[in-house]
Nucleic acid binder design. Structure first.
Lengths: 228, 228
DNA sequence: GTTCTATACGAACGGCGTTCGTGTCAAGCC
DNA sequence: GGCTTGACACGAACGCCGTTCGTATAGAAC
Protein backbone atom coordinates (compact mmCIF):
# COMPACT_ATOMS: atom_id res chain seq x y z
CA UNK A 1 0.00 0.00 0.00
CA UNK A 2 1.82 3.13 -1.20
CA UNK A 3 1.57 6.03 1.19
CA UNK A 4 3.83 8.12 -1.02
CA UNK A 5 2.34 10.01 -3.97
CA UNK A 6 3.19 8.79 -7.39
CA UNK A 7 5.51 11.27 -9.15
CA UNK A 8 4.03 10.37 -12.50
CA UNK A 9 0.56 11.64 -11.76
CA UNK A 10 1.93 14.84 -10.34
CA UNK A 11 4.02 15.77 -13.32
CA UNK A 12 1.03 15.71 -15.62
CA UNK A 13 -0.74 18.68 -14.09
CA UNK A 14 1.47 20.98 -12.14
CA UNK A 15 1.33 24.80 -12.14
CA UNK A 16 -2.13 24.87 -13.59
CA UNK A 17 -4.15 26.21 -10.66
CA UNK A 18 -5.05 29.88 -10.49
CA UNK A 19 -7.23 32.19 -8.48
CA UNK A 20 -9.40 32.84 -11.51
CA UNK A 21 -9.78 29.17 -12.27
CA UNK A 22 -10.83 28.44 -8.71
CA UNK A 23 -13.47 31.16 -8.81
CA UNK A 24 -14.66 29.79 -12.15
CA UNK A 25 -15.07 26.32 -10.70
CA UNK A 26 -16.82 27.61 -7.59
CA UNK A 27 -19.29 29.61 -9.61
CA UNK A 28 -19.97 26.64 -11.85
CA UNK A 29 -20.80 24.53 -8.80
CA UNK A 30 -23.13 27.17 -7.39
CA UNK A 31 -24.91 27.51 -10.71
CA UNK A 32 -25.37 23.77 -11.08
CA UNK A 33 -25.97 22.54 -7.55
CA UNK A 34 -26.42 25.55 -5.31
CA UNK A 35 -24.54 27.23 -2.51
CA UNK A 36 -24.65 24.28 -0.15
CA UNK A 37 -22.80 22.14 -2.67
CA UNK A 38 -19.92 24.62 -2.65
CA UNK A 39 -17.23 22.92 -0.62
CA UNK A 40 -13.48 23.18 -0.73
CA UNK A 41 -13.62 19.48 -1.55
CA UNK A 42 -16.06 19.85 -4.45
CA UNK A 43 -14.10 22.76 -5.86
CA UNK A 44 -10.85 20.81 -5.63
CA UNK A 45 -12.45 17.75 -7.16
CA UNK A 46 -13.86 19.79 -10.06
CA UNK A 47 -10.33 21.01 -10.75
CA UNK A 48 -8.88 17.54 -10.38
CA UNK A 49 -6.70 18.48 -7.45
CA UNK A 50 -6.61 18.23 -3.66
CA UNK A 51 -8.27 20.64 -1.26
CA UNK A 52 -5.03 21.79 0.25
CA UNK A 53 -3.90 23.12 -3.12
CA UNK A 54 -6.65 25.72 -3.10
CA UNK A 55 -5.21 27.41 -0.04
CA UNK A 56 -2.20 28.57 -1.98
CA UNK A 57 -4.51 30.89 -3.95
CA UNK A 58 -7.33 31.60 -1.54
CA UNK A 59 -7.10 32.44 2.17
CA UNK A 60 -10.23 30.59 3.25
CA UNK A 61 -13.68 29.70 2.05
CA UNK A 62 -15.06 33.07 3.10
CA UNK A 63 -12.42 34.65 0.90
CA UNK A 64 -13.44 32.46 -2.01
CA UNK A 65 -17.08 33.40 -1.57
CA UNK A 66 -16.17 37.04 -1.55
CA UNK A 67 -14.31 36.60 -4.81
CA UNK A 68 -17.27 34.79 -6.35
CA UNK A 69 -19.65 37.56 -5.33
CA UNK A 70 -17.29 40.20 -6.61
CA UNK A 71 -17.11 38.34 -9.90
CA UNK A 72 -20.88 38.18 -10.21
CA UNK A 73 -21.26 41.86 -9.35
CA UNK A 74 -18.85 42.39 -12.21
CA UNK A 75 -21.36 40.74 -14.53
CA UNK A 76 -23.82 43.52 -13.80
CA UNK A 77 -24.05 46.26 -16.37
CA UNK A 78 -23.80 49.48 -14.38
CA UNK A 79 -22.88 51.56 -17.38
CA UNK A 80 -25.25 54.38 -16.54
CA UNK A 81 -24.67 58.05 -17.31
CA UNK A 82 -26.42 59.97 -14.51
CA UNK A 83 -29.27 62.06 -15.86
CA UNK A 84 -30.99 64.44 -13.40
CA UNK A 85 -34.28 64.05 -15.27
CA UNK A 86 -34.30 60.28 -15.07
CA UNK A 87 -32.68 59.39 -11.76
CA UNK A 88 -35.64 57.35 -10.54
CA UNK A 89 -35.69 55.23 -13.65
CA UNK A 90 -31.92 54.83 -13.52
CA UNK A 91 -32.02 53.61 -9.93
CA UNK A 92 -34.59 51.05 -10.91
CA UNK A 93 -32.53 50.00 -13.89
CA UNK A 94 -29.51 49.29 -11.70
CA UNK A 95 -31.55 47.26 -9.22
CA UNK A 96 -33.23 45.28 -12.00
CA UNK A 97 -29.79 44.42 -13.27
CA UNK A 98 -28.63 43.15 -9.87
CA UNK A 99 -31.72 41.06 -9.39
CA UNK A 100 -31.45 39.57 -12.87
CA UNK A 101 -27.75 38.75 -12.67
CA UNK A 102 -27.91 37.12 -9.25
CA UNK A 103 -31.05 35.35 -10.33
CA UNK A 104 -28.90 33.60 -12.91
CA UNK A 105 -26.60 32.18 -10.24
CA UNK A 106 -28.66 29.87 -8.10
CA UNK A 107 -29.01 30.88 -4.49
CA UNK A 108 -25.76 32.82 -4.39
CA UNK A 109 -27.76 35.85 -3.28
CA UNK A 110 -28.10 34.17 0.10
CA UNK A 111 -24.37 34.49 0.66
CA UNK A 112 -24.44 38.20 -0.06
CA UNK A 113 -26.65 39.00 2.89
CA UNK A 114 -24.44 39.75 5.83
CA UNK A 115 -21.49 40.95 3.80
CA UNK A 116 -20.15 44.35 2.82
CA UNK A 117 -18.62 43.93 -0.64
CA UNK A 118 -15.58 46.14 -1.10
CA UNK A 119 -14.06 44.79 -4.31
CA UNK A 120 -13.38 46.78 -7.43
CA UNK A 121 -16.67 45.88 -9.14
CA UNK A 122 -18.74 46.48 -6.02
CA UNK A 123 -17.17 49.89 -5.58
CA UNK A 124 -17.89 50.78 -9.19
CA UNK A 125 -21.51 49.83 -8.59
CA UNK A 126 -21.76 51.97 -5.48
CA UNK A 127 -20.03 54.85 -7.22
CA UNK A 128 -22.51 54.70 -10.07
CA UNK A 129 -25.47 54.51 -7.71
CA UNK A 130 -24.27 57.53 -5.73
CA UNK A 131 -23.72 59.42 -8.96
CA UNK A 132 -27.26 58.78 -10.08
CA UNK A 133 -28.75 59.78 -6.75
CA UNK A 134 -26.64 62.91 -6.53
CA UNK A 135 -27.69 63.91 -10.00
CA UNK A 136 -31.24 63.48 -8.74
CA UNK A 137 -30.55 66.15 -6.19
CA UNK A 138 -30.98 63.99 -3.11
CA UNK A 139 -29.25 65.03 0.10
CA UNK A 140 -26.06 63.12 0.81
CA UNK A 141 -27.51 61.70 4.01
CA UNK A 142 -30.35 60.14 2.05
CA UNK A 143 -27.92 58.76 -0.48
CA UNK A 144 -25.70 57.15 2.13
CA UNK A 145 -28.70 55.31 3.47
CA UNK A 146 -30.05 54.37 0.05
CA UNK A 147 -26.74 52.72 -0.84
CA UNK A 148 -27.43 50.16 1.86
CA UNK A 149 -31.15 49.71 1.45
CA UNK A 150 -31.54 49.42 -2.31
CA UNK A 151 -29.12 46.53 -2.87
CA UNK A 152 -30.45 44.86 0.26
CA UNK A 153 -33.87 44.84 -1.32
CA UNK A 154 -32.69 43.57 -4.68
CA UNK A 155 -30.70 40.75 -3.07
CA UNK A 156 -33.53 39.77 -0.76
CA UNK A 157 -35.88 39.39 -3.70
CA UNK A 158 -33.29 37.52 -5.72
CA UNK A 159 -32.79 35.08 -2.88
CA UNK A 160 -36.49 34.66 -2.25
CA UNK A 161 -36.96 33.76 -5.89
CA UNK A 162 -34.11 31.27 -5.82
CA UNK A 163 -35.94 29.35 -3.10
CA UNK A 164 -38.45 27.79 -5.42
CA UNK A 165 -36.81 28.07 -8.80
CA UNK A 166 -34.16 25.40 -8.45
CA UNK A 167 -33.02 22.33 -10.32
CA UNK A 168 -36.37 20.70 -11.09
CA UNK A 169 -37.68 24.15 -11.79
CA UNK A 170 -40.91 22.98 -13.28
CA UNK A 171 -43.84 25.32 -13.13
CA UNK A 172 -45.70 22.64 -11.17
CA UNK A 173 -43.14 22.76 -8.35
CA UNK A 174 -43.44 26.50 -8.23
CA UNK A 175 -47.22 26.37 -8.07
CA UNK A 176 -47.08 23.71 -5.39
CA UNK A 177 -44.81 25.82 -3.23
CA UNK A 178 -46.91 28.95 -3.62
CA UNK A 179 -50.12 27.01 -3.20
CA UNK A 180 -49.10 25.33 0.06
CA UNK A 181 -48.05 28.70 1.40
CA UNK A 182 -51.32 30.27 0.44
CA UNK A 183 -53.46 27.52 1.91
CA UNK A 184 -51.43 27.75 5.12
CA UNK A 185 -52.45 31.38 5.50
CA UNK A 186 -55.99 30.74 4.33
CA UNK A 187 -56.57 28.04 6.91
CA UNK A 188 -55.38 29.99 9.91
CA UNK A 189 -58.07 30.56 12.56
CA UNK A 190 -60.03 33.44 11.13
CA UNK A 191 -61.05 34.91 14.45
CA UNK A 192 -57.45 35.47 15.56
CA UNK A 193 -55.77 36.21 12.22
CA UNK A 194 -58.45 37.88 10.11
CA UNK A 195 -56.03 40.07 8.19
CA UNK A 196 -53.65 37.23 7.31
CA UNK A 197 -56.54 35.12 6.07
CA UNK A 198 -57.86 38.00 4.02
CA UNK A 199 -54.48 38.75 2.47
CA UNK A 200 -53.50 35.12 1.92
CA UNK A 201 -53.79 35.59 -1.82
CA UNK A 202 -51.79 38.79 -2.05
CA UNK A 203 -49.07 37.65 0.35
CA UNK A 204 -48.31 34.73 -1.94
CA UNK A 205 -48.89 36.54 -5.21
CA UNK A 206 -47.45 34.68 -8.13
CA UNK A 207 -46.09 37.35 -10.41
CA UNK A 208 -42.64 38.00 -8.99
CA UNK A 209 -41.82 40.61 -11.55
CA UNK A 210 -44.78 42.74 -10.64
CA UNK A 211 -43.99 42.39 -6.96
CA UNK A 212 -40.40 43.41 -7.49
CA UNK A 213 -41.33 46.48 -9.51
CA UNK A 214 -43.87 47.41 -6.92
CA UNK A 215 -41.31 47.42 -4.10
CA UNK A 216 -38.90 49.36 -6.25
CA UNK A 217 -41.54 51.99 -6.76
CA UNK A 218 -42.15 52.28 -3.02
CA UNK A 219 -38.46 52.68 -2.30
CA UNK A 220 -37.83 55.25 -4.99
CA UNK A 221 -40.84 57.28 -3.99
CA UNK A 222 -39.74 57.20 -0.38
CA UNK A 223 -36.32 58.47 -1.40
CA UNK A 224 -37.86 61.17 -3.58
CA UNK A 225 -39.98 62.29 -0.64
CA UNK A 226 -36.77 62.97 1.29
CA UNK A 227 -35.41 65.27 -1.39
CA UNK A 228 -36.53 68.47 0.28
CA UNK B 1 -12.31 1.21 31.39
CA UNK B 2 -16.12 1.14 31.67
CA UNK B 3 -17.85 1.38 28.33
CA UNK B 4 -21.22 0.99 30.01
CA UNK B 5 -22.89 4.07 31.50
CA UNK B 6 -23.01 4.25 35.22
CA UNK B 7 -26.60 3.81 36.40
CA UNK B 8 -25.96 6.09 39.36
CA UNK B 9 -25.26 9.18 37.27
CA UNK B 10 -28.30 8.57 35.11
CA UNK B 11 -30.77 8.25 37.93
CA UNK B 12 -29.90 11.69 39.20
CA UNK B 13 -31.13 13.54 36.16
CA UNK B 14 -33.56 11.59 34.07
CA UNK B 15 -36.74 12.99 32.51
CA UNK B 16 -35.62 16.56 32.97
CA UNK B 17 -35.12 17.64 29.36
CA UNK B 18 -37.79 19.67 27.62
CA UNK B 19 -38.25 21.66 24.42
CA UNK B 20 -38.54 24.87 26.44
CA UNK B 21 -35.42 24.12 28.41
CA UNK B 22 -33.45 23.46 25.25
CA UNK B 23 -34.57 26.74 23.71
CA UNK B 24 -33.64 28.50 26.97
CA UNK B 25 -30.16 27.06 26.89
CA UNK B 26 -29.70 27.87 23.20
CA UNK B 27 -30.73 31.47 23.69
CA UNK B 28 -28.42 31.81 26.67
CA UNK B 29 -25.51 30.61 24.53
CA UNK B 30 -26.35 33.04 21.73
CA UNK B 31 -26.60 35.92 24.19
CA UNK B 32 -23.30 35.10 25.81
CA UNK B 33 -21.13 33.87 22.95
CA UNK B 34 -22.95 34.50 19.71
CA UNK B 35 -24.58 32.46 17.00
CA UNK B 36 -21.44 30.61 15.96
CA UNK B 37 -21.10 29.19 19.47
CA UNK B 38 -24.53 27.61 19.17
CA UNK B 39 -23.85 23.94 18.61
CA UNK B 40 -25.82 20.87 19.45
CA UNK B 41 -22.80 19.96 21.54
CA UNK B 42 -22.68 23.25 23.46
CA UNK B 43 -26.40 23.14 24.08
CA UNK B 44 -26.19 19.58 25.35
CA UNK B 45 -23.21 20.40 27.51
CA UNK B 46 -24.99 23.40 29.02
CA UNK B 47 -27.83 21.09 29.98
CA UNK B 48 -25.45 18.46 31.28
CA UNK B 49 -26.57 15.84 28.80
CA UNK B 50 -25.47 14.26 25.52
CA UNK B 51 -26.19 15.68 22.08
CA UNK B 52 -28.32 12.78 21.03
CA UNK B 53 -30.78 13.53 23.81
CA UNK B 54 -31.73 16.82 22.20
CA UNK B 55 -33.10 15.07 19.14
CA UNK B 56 -35.96 13.63 21.13
CA UNK B 57 -37.33 17.16 21.48
CA UNK B 58 -36.06 18.95 18.41
CA UNK B 59 -36.00 17.70 14.84
CA UNK B 60 -32.69 19.30 13.82
CA UNK B 61 -30.61 22.38 14.46
CA UNK B 62 -32.61 24.40 11.95
CA UNK B 63 -35.71 23.52 13.92
CA UNK B 64 -34.06 24.68 17.13
CA UNK B 65 -33.07 27.96 15.54
CA UNK B 66 -36.60 28.50 14.37
CA UNK B 67 -37.86 27.96 17.89
CA UNK B 68 -35.31 30.40 19.27
CA UNK B 69 -36.31 33.07 16.76
CA UNK B 70 -39.97 32.47 17.46
CA UNK B 71 -39.25 32.86 21.16
CA UNK B 72 -37.45 36.15 20.64
CA UNK B 73 -40.21 37.49 18.41
CA UNK B 74 -42.45 36.67 21.32
CA UNK B 75 -40.43 39.06 23.44
CA UNK B 76 -41.50 41.91 21.19
CA UNK B 77 -44.33 44.06 22.42
CA UNK B 78 -46.72 44.27 19.48
CA UNK B 79 -49.64 45.35 21.62
CA UNK B 80 -50.75 48.10 19.28
CA UNK B 81 -54.33 49.21 18.76
CA UNK B 82 -54.50 50.36 15.12
CA UNK B 83 -55.29 54.06 14.89
CA UNK B 84 -55.94 55.49 11.40
CA UNK B 85 -54.53 58.85 12.45
CA UNK B 86 -51.25 57.45 13.70
CA UNK B 87 -50.47 54.52 11.42
CA UNK B 88 -47.07 55.85 10.39
CA UNK B 89 -45.94 56.28 13.97
CA UNK B 90 -47.32 52.86 14.86
CA UNK B 91 -45.40 51.16 12.07
CA UNK B 92 -42.22 52.80 13.32
CA UNK B 93 -43.01 51.75 16.85
CA UNK B 94 -43.29 48.10 15.85
CA UNK B 95 -40.01 48.20 13.91
CA UNK B 96 -38.19 49.94 16.75
CA UNK B 97 -39.37 47.16 19.01
CA UNK B 98 -38.00 44.45 16.70
CA UNK B 99 -34.68 46.15 16.34
CA UNK B 100 -34.36 46.67 20.08
CA UNK B 101 -35.34 43.14 21.06
CA UNK B 102 -33.06 41.43 18.56
CA UNK B 103 -30.33 43.87 19.49
CA UNK B 104 -30.46 42.36 22.97
CA UNK B 105 -29.69 38.88 21.62
CA UNK B 106 -26.25 39.01 20.12
CA UNK B 107 -26.09 38.34 16.39
CA UNK B 108 -29.23 36.23 16.31
CA UNK B 109 -30.63 38.64 13.72
CA UNK B 110 -28.23 37.06 11.25
CA UNK B 111 -30.10 33.78 11.47
CA UNK B 112 -33.39 35.46 10.70
CA UNK B 113 -32.36 36.56 7.26
CA UNK B 114 -33.36 33.87 4.83
CA UNK B 115 -36.21 32.49 6.87
CA UNK B 116 -39.96 32.94 6.80
CA UNK B 117 -41.15 32.75 10.40
CA UNK B 118 -44.53 31.11 10.68
CA UNK B 119 -44.86 30.54 14.43
CA UNK B 120 -47.60 31.83 16.66
CA UNK B 121 -45.72 34.93 17.75
CA UNK B 122 -44.53 35.78 14.26
CA UNK B 123 -48.06 35.49 12.95
CA UNK B 124 -49.36 37.77 15.70
CA UNK B 125 -46.71 40.29 14.69
CA UNK B 126 -47.71 40.14 11.03
CA UNK B 127 -51.36 40.35 11.92
CA UNK B 128 -50.76 43.49 13.98
CA UNK B 129 -48.67 45.06 11.25
CA UNK B 130 -51.32 44.41 8.62
CA UNK B 131 -53.98 45.80 10.95
CA UNK B 132 -52.06 49.03 11.37
CA UNK B 133 -51.44 49.43 7.65
CA UNK B 134 -55.04 48.68 6.79
CA UNK B 135 -56.22 51.23 9.32
CA UNK B 136 -53.92 53.63 7.53
CA UNK B 137 -55.94 53.07 4.38
CA UNK B 138 -53.12 51.52 2.32
CA UNK B 139 -54.07 49.23 -0.56
CA UNK B 140 -53.74 45.55 0.25
CA UNK B 141 -51.11 45.11 -2.42
CA UNK B 142 -48.91 47.68 -0.75
CA UNK B 143 -49.46 46.03 2.59
CA UNK B 144 -48.51 42.59 1.35
CA UNK B 145 -45.22 44.00 0.15
CA UNK B 146 -44.61 46.08 3.27
CA UNK B 147 -44.95 42.97 5.44
CA UNK B 148 -41.80 41.63 3.81
CA UNK B 149 -39.78 44.80 3.49
CA UNK B 150 -40.24 46.43 6.89
CA UNK B 151 -39.04 43.51 9.03
CA UNK B 152 -36.25 42.87 6.55
CA UNK B 153 -35.01 46.39 7.16
CA UNK B 154 -35.27 46.15 10.95
CA UNK B 155 -33.41 42.84 11.01
CA UNK B 156 -30.71 44.05 8.65
CA UNK B 157 -29.99 47.02 10.88
CA UNK B 158 -30.07 44.86 14.01
CA UNK B 159 -27.56 42.50 12.48
CA UNK B 160 -25.32 45.27 11.21
CA UNK B 161 -25.19 46.70 14.70
CA UNK B 162 -24.36 43.35 16.24
CA UNK B 163 -21.26 43.20 14.07
CA UNK B 164 -19.28 45.63 16.15
CA UNK B 165 -21.06 45.57 19.47
CA UNK B 166 -19.91 42.21 20.75
CA UNK B 167 -18.24 40.83 23.86
CA UNK B 168 -15.45 43.36 24.34
CA UNK B 169 -17.95 46.02 23.36
CA UNK B 170 -15.76 48.92 24.34
CA UNK B 171 -16.37 52.22 22.65
CA UNK B 172 -12.80 52.11 21.42
CA UNK B 173 -13.43 48.91 19.45
CA UNK B 174 -16.46 50.48 17.88
CA UNK B 175 -14.58 53.62 16.90
CA UNK B 176 -11.75 51.54 15.50
CA UNK B 177 -14.11 49.57 13.29
CA UNK B 178 -15.91 52.64 11.99
CA UNK B 179 -12.67 54.51 11.62
CA UNK B 180 -10.95 51.85 9.52
CA UNK B 181 -14.01 51.68 7.30
CA UNK B 182 -14.06 55.40 6.85
CA UNK B 183 -10.39 55.69 6.03
CA UNK B 184 -10.77 52.86 3.52
CA UNK B 185 -13.32 54.90 1.61
CA UNK B 186 -11.41 58.13 2.07
CA UNK B 187 -8.24 56.70 0.63
CA UNK B 188 -9.77 55.28 -2.54
CA UNK B 189 -8.40 56.78 -5.76
CA UNK B 190 -10.30 60.05 -5.98
CA UNK B 191 -10.31 60.20 -9.75
CA UNK B 192 -12.21 56.93 -10.10
CA UNK B 193 -14.38 57.00 -7.00
CA UNK B 194 -15.05 60.69 -6.34
CA UNK B 195 -18.48 60.13 -4.85
CA UNK B 196 -17.37 57.39 -2.46
CA UNK B 197 -14.50 59.53 -1.23
CA UNK B 198 -16.83 62.47 -0.75
CA UNK B 199 -19.39 60.43 1.15
CA UNK B 200 -16.86 58.47 3.21
CA UNK B 201 -17.99 60.26 6.34
CA UNK B 202 -21.71 59.83 5.83
CA UNK B 203 -21.44 56.19 4.73
CA UNK B 204 -19.81 55.32 8.03
CA UNK B 205 -21.84 57.69 10.18
CA UNK B 206 -21.61 56.82 13.84
CA UNK B 207 -25.05 57.48 15.23
CA UNK B 208 -26.89 54.23 14.54
CA UNK B 209 -30.10 55.42 16.07
CA UNK B 210 -30.32 58.38 13.77
CA UNK B 211 -29.54 56.22 10.77
CA UNK B 212 -32.21 53.73 11.70
CA UNK B 213 -34.87 56.39 12.18
CA UNK B 214 -33.89 57.94 8.91
CA UNK B 215 -34.42 54.73 6.98
CA UNK B 216 -37.69 54.15 8.74
CA UNK B 217 -38.85 57.56 7.62
CA UNK B 218 -37.94 56.79 4.01
CA UNK B 219 -39.83 53.52 4.06
CA UNK B 220 -42.95 54.91 5.68
CA UNK B 221 -43.06 57.87 3.34
CA UNK B 222 -42.67 55.57 0.37
CA UNK B 223 -45.57 53.49 1.60
CA UNK B 224 -47.66 56.58 2.21
CA UNK B 225 -46.97 57.73 -1.33
CA UNK B 226 -48.58 54.51 -2.59
CA UNK B 227 -51.82 55.20 -0.71
CA UNK B 228 -53.59 56.87 -3.59
C1' DG C 1 24.48 22.61 -12.03
C1' DT C 2 22.96 24.10 -7.75
C1' DT C 3 19.91 26.61 -4.81
C1' DC C 4 15.73 28.58 -3.73
C1' DT C 5 10.95 29.55 -3.74
C1' DA C 6 6.28 28.89 -4.93
C1' DT C 7 2.95 25.57 -5.03
C1' DA C 8 0.78 20.87 -5.52
C1' DC C 9 -0.95 17.39 -2.64
C1' DG C 10 -1.96 13.21 0.59
C1' DA C 11 -3.00 12.79 5.09
C1' DA C 12 -4.62 14.12 9.16
C1' DC C 13 -6.95 17.18 12.89
C1' DG C 14 -10.62 18.91 15.33
C1' DG C 15 -15.30 20.05 15.04
C1' DC C 16 -19.79 19.81 13.12
C1' DG C 17 -24.96 17.77 12.56
C1' DT C 18 -27.00 13.59 12.88
C1' DT C 19 -28.01 8.45 13.67
C1' DC C 20 -27.67 3.94 15.95
C1' DG C 21 -28.12 0.79 19.47
C1' DT C 22 -28.55 0.15 24.07
C1' DG C 23 -30.05 1.10 28.57
C1' DT C 24 -33.34 2.81 31.91
C1' DC C 25 -37.23 4.41 34.11
C1' DA C 26 -42.16 5.47 34.91
C1' DA C 27 -46.77 4.40 33.99
C1' DG C 28 -50.46 1.01 32.67
C1' DC C 29 -52.27 -3.49 33.10
C1' DC C 30 -53.24 -8.09 35.09
C1' DG D 1 -47.03 -6.56 43.37
C1' DG D 2 -44.99 -8.27 39.33
C1' DC D 3 -44.76 -7.64 34.12
C1' DT D 4 -44.93 -5.26 29.95
C1' DT D 5 -44.27 -1.45 27.25
C1' DG D 6 -43.02 2.81 25.25
C1' DA D 7 -40.80 7.19 25.72
C1' DC D 8 -36.60 9.12 26.51
C1' DA D 9 -31.41 9.52 27.92
C1' DC D 10 -27.04 8.83 26.16
C1' DG D 11 -22.24 7.00 24.60
C1' DA D 12 -20.33 6.07 20.45
C1' DA D 13 -19.81 6.40 15.92
C1' DC D 14 -20.59 8.10 10.91
C1' DG D 15 -19.77 11.04 7.28
C1' DC D 16 -19.22 15.45 6.39
C1' DC D 17 -16.84 20.05 6.84
C1' DG D 18 -12.80 23.87 6.83
C1' DT D 19 -8.21 23.99 7.61
C1' DT D 20 -3.14 22.72 8.56
C1' DC D 21 1.10 19.99 8.22
C1' DG D 22 4.88 17.95 6.08
C1' DT D 23 6.80 16.64 2.03
C1' DA D 24 7.72 16.52 -2.86
C1' DT D 25 8.63 18.86 -6.98
C1' DA D 26 9.01 22.00 -10.90
C1' DG D 27 10.77 25.98 -12.73
C1' DA D 28 13.31 30.43 -12.05
C1' DA D 29 17.60 32.63 -10.42
C1' DC D 30 22.18 32.53 -10.17
Amino acid sequence: MPTRPSPARRATRARTLSREGIVDAALKIIDAEGLDALTMRTVAHTLGTGQASLYAHVAHKEDLLELVIERVIGECDFDIRPDPERWQEQVKQAMREMRAVFGRHGDLARASFARIPLGENALRGSETMIGVLRAGGLPDRVIAFACDLLPLYAMAIAYEESLYSFEGATEADFDAFVGSMRSYFQNLPGDRFPHLVALAGLLTEGDNNERFEFGLEVLVRGLAAMAR
